[in-house]
Nucleic acid binder design. Structure first.
Length: 282
DNA sequence: ATGGCGTCGGTTCGACGA
């Protein structure tokens, strides 16, 4: 049994298109590095009846999905071999599951939470999150984003009071600081970097969450998303908008946090690339 | 330089993403 777990998040921009890459990435990690014990996906863009449970099951992973046609959709994928013996199927792997922010009436599938009983440690509460894009500060979608952020914060406060081992991971659609933006001067006040969004991000940190990536020395100009246009990836014109935030108890045991750029170099990639945090077992 | 790309649904283009 390994003494740590690796949790990850990846906005796949259509699981239908990207399933082969998800499987390849998980297999590569198993073979070459350390297995990914849990992977939170965003932007499935498919309904639950189209979710590829069998393909992932055959690869050794069990899933819980909250899907939607065309847009949004989130999932949590867990490596079966990493689970405590009490877990045998989805109902015993994904404990206390929550779809959507309770009390926040929203048909957009952006939140999926569950407590995962990994072997040799207390269950970890994972929140797979796909934050609204916001479009632009003048847009109705931006107002929706800010209201959603408020609802998220208030719900997470409650979640944290009940779960001291919690990770919030996914596509936040917020670049927390100028160090997370390839050309901050071009982006001043715009969507993804506006003061309102950054303030909401700060308020999440003030709940007792830590941006795991910034706990460690990182290469400058590290990003998790690059625009498909204008050769964004080749120019490294990107942003760091995918994050893994950890509660105090998990932060204290976090050994590493990184962005794996490799899948972004593959044929027909997602515009986002996976982010990973490694957490020592208690 | 903000367009230009990718995905979807449903048709041959618009909405949306970030």
């Amino acid at each position: 049994m390994t003494e740590s777990v690796r949790i990850a998040a990846w906005n796949v921009n259509s699981l239908k298109v990207r399933l082969p890459q998800v499987l390849k990435w998980l297999q590569d990690q198993e073979k070459v590095k350390k297995p990914i014990d849990a992977l939170c996906l965003q932007e499935l863009k498919l309904t639950d009846d189209k979710y590829p449970h069998q393909e992932l099951e055959d690869a050794g992973y069990v899933s819980l999905a909250a899907g939607q046609k065309t847009y949004n959709g989130v999932a949590i994928i867990v490596r079966k071999a990493s689970l405590a013996p009490i877990a045998s199927d989805a109902s015993t792997t994904f404990l206390k599951p929550i779809r959507n922010i309770p009390g926040n009436v929203d048909e957009q599938q952006r939140i999926l939470a569950a407590s995962i009983p990994f072997a040799g440690m207390q269950p970890i509460r994972l929140v797979s999150a796909y934050f609204p894009n916001g479009q632009s500060p003048e847009s109705d979608k931006f107002a929706y984003k800010l209201a959603w952020l408020q609802a998220l914060e208030s719900w997470l406060k409650d979640e944290l009071s009940q779960n001291n081992q919690l990770a919030l991971l996914g596509d936040f659609n917020i670049a927390p600081t100028d160090a997370d933006v390839y050309d901050p001067s071009k982006w001043v006040g715009q969507n993804l970097v506006s003061p309102e969004e950054r303030k909401a991000f700060q308020q999440l940190l003030e709940l007792g969450l830590t941006d795991s990536f910034r706990m460690f020395e990182q290469a400058p100009k590290s990003y998790s998303w690059w625009d498909y246009r204008m050769m964004g990836f080749r120019r490294n014109a990107g942003m760091r908008i995918d994050h893994i935030l950890l509660s105090e108890a998990l932060k204290d045991r976090c050994m590493a946090s990184l962005i794996d750029k490799e899948p972004r170099t593959w044929e027909q990639p997602s515009d986002h690339t996976p982010v990973i945090a490694e957490i020592k077992k208690a």
